[in-house]
């Protein structure tokens, strides 16, 4: 075989594999929409999105997912409020401050944290954290927003920390030297030069952490409590969208309104995570021409 023929075969093989992966994903999205959209023959989109009653098995059934959306948003936002400071500050410490030995240890521990199966975290939240919270704060249940947010934060911290750390690490040494040579201290260099130059990467990290948290199923299924009602406080139970889909899909009759409503919930979730990823992409591209450190 000539080297030219080999080049052509390799090129087409790679193109084919790439095409198949994209096609498979495309078909899944198509399937999601095909199974989800029929619900809108029964109720309007506004009723579906903003209806606050989720009684899919009643007669007549009600398919309002507002409480599920609220549940998802609240645990995501709360988990980010916890995970962003921890993730970001640990990234800054690892990349800029820690001595070499500690740096390696911390990096591997955070990678280890990323490798924890979510079911293990859910189990921890259920068996250790929930009973403790229930007793300490005298709550009706320890399976609630705070518990779910804490567990989701533990999942999001490694994502935020490792991507931010890459972004900080990518900041050119030239900028740091320039800053020190102008009489800046280490702290001033980090705050005024390194973080601004890495900001696009850091924003990407935060948004990818959020999209990780909002799409996570097992943790919220196990520890969010599963109540499909709009919460009145942070110690109430909620039923985020992924938990609702996972819990109910096995029982919903094929082709029923409930079945279509769950797929439509999946569409909503898909659109939210897609939006997060697009925003992350946009932000990471934004400062590239300025020559700052990006991923």
């Amino acid at each position: 075989m000539t080297s030219k023929a080999r080049e052509i075969i390799i090129k087409n093989l790679f193109a084919l594999l790439a095409f198949i992966s994209v096609l498979l994903l495309g078909l899944i999205v198509l399937f999601l929409f095909r199974e989800g959209l029929p619900i809108f023959k029964q109720i309007s989109m506004a009723q579906f999105l903003f209806g606050s009653a989720w009684y899919p098995t009643y007669d007549p059934p009600e398919y309002g997912i507002w409480s599920l959306i609220v549940g998802s948003v609240i645990v995501t936002v709360l988990s980010c409020l916890i995970a962003v400071p921890f993730g970001l500050l640990s990234a800054i410490y690892i990349s800029e401050i820690a001595p070499a030995g500690i740096k390696e240890i911390l990096k591997s521990v955070i990678e280890l944290l990323a490798g924890l199966p979510s079911v293990v975290l859910g189990f921890f939240g259920m068996v250790i954290l929930a009973p403790w919270m229930q007793e300490t704060f005298d709550l009706p249940t320890g399976l609630n927003i705070v518990n779910a947010s804490l567990m989701l934060a533990v999942m999001a911290i490694p994502t935020i920390s490792s991507i931010s750390e890459d972004a900080l690490y990518a900041v050119s040494r030239d900028f740091k030297e320039a800053s020190y040579a102008l009489g800046a201290t280490k702290y001033e260099t980090i705050v005024k030069v390194v973080i601004p130059a890495a900001l696009s990467g850091i924003s990407t990290a935060v948004i990818l952490g959020m999209s990780r948290a909002i799409g996570e199923t097992m943790v919220v299924l196990m520890v969010a409590g599963g109540s499909a009602a709009i919460p009145r406080g942070i110690f109430d139970s909620v039923r985020p969208m992924p938990a609702s889909i996972a819990a109910e899909m096995g029982e919903a009759a094929f082709g029923s309104g409930h079945y279509h409503a769950l797929f439509a919930t999946g569409i909503v979730l898909f659109i939210i995570t897609l939006a997060f990823n697009l925003i992350a992409d946009h932000i990471s591209n934004r400062f590239k021409e300025e020559g700052s450190g990006t991923l």
Partner: peptide
């Protein structure tokens, strides 16, 4: 004692 480097290194500001 100010310093100017080999490669121009203005901040991305």
């Amino acid at each position: 004692i100010g310093m100017v480097f080999q490669k121009p290194n203005p901040f991305p500001k």
